[in-house]
């Protein structure tokens, strides 16, 4: 009886989805050929239908979707001399000015970018290629595309 119900369910689904008639009969033939060979032991397996792996891929896709939509872009921020780092969502800032203001408040220090100064900390970032660059040279949108993490460097080292 269970086999019959499953067969019926698949048949209705197939009929609804298939448009040409010849393949419809082919579908029915396939169904009738495969199901009698199913043994009770295989029928009782836990991983059928294989939703577990697909659900995992779907959830992974949702995370990618969230990243793709640019709704959040969390990056690590380190300050030289401070052992504990922070994490920051760059998408909440409108540009370099608000980023610097927030970082200066977060780390309680004066931070600049774009120019080298002997008295202030300088903000640098690691890009996709693994190179450390000075923050502020490129447009903000381009910066969001390439930044991997941030580092606040001491004045005398860079």
């Amino acid at each position: 009886m269970e086999v019959s119900n499953s067969c019926s369910s698949f048949s209705s689904s197939s009929v609804d989805s298939t448009k040409p008639s010849p393949s419809e009969s082919s579908v029915n033939l396939s169904l009738s050929l495969t199901f009698p060979s199913t043994s009770p032991q295989r029928e009782a397996r836990q991983d059928w239908p294989p939703i577990k792996s697909r659900l995992r891929d779907t959830l992974k896709g949702r995370r990618l979707l969230r990243r793709g939509d640019d709704t959040s872009l969390f990056v690590k921020v380190y300050m030289e001399g401070v052992p504990i780092g922070r994490k920051l969502d760059l998408c909440v800032f409108s540009g370099y000015e608000s980023l610097l203001e927030n970082l200066s408040h977060m780390f309680d220090t004066s931070i600049i970018c774009g120019n080298r100064d002997r008295k202030h900390h300088v903000l640098t970032y690691e890009d996709k290629d693994g190179d450390w660059m000075m923050v502020g040279d490129i447009p903000w949108d381009m910066f969001l595309e390439t930044v991997r993490r941030l580092k606040i460097t001491r004045p005398e080292r860079y």
Binding site: S17, T34, R42, R45, P49, P50, R54, L55
Partner: peptide, 23 residues
């Protein structure tokens, strides 16, 4: 781990829509 019916279906080159809305 795949059911023989499912395996044969994929061999035909078709893809079954199991009704998961997240696909």
């Amino acid at each position: 781990k795949y059911h023989p019916y499912y395996s044969q279906t994929t061999e035909f080159g078709g893809v079954i829509d199991l009704g998961l809305s997240l696909r």
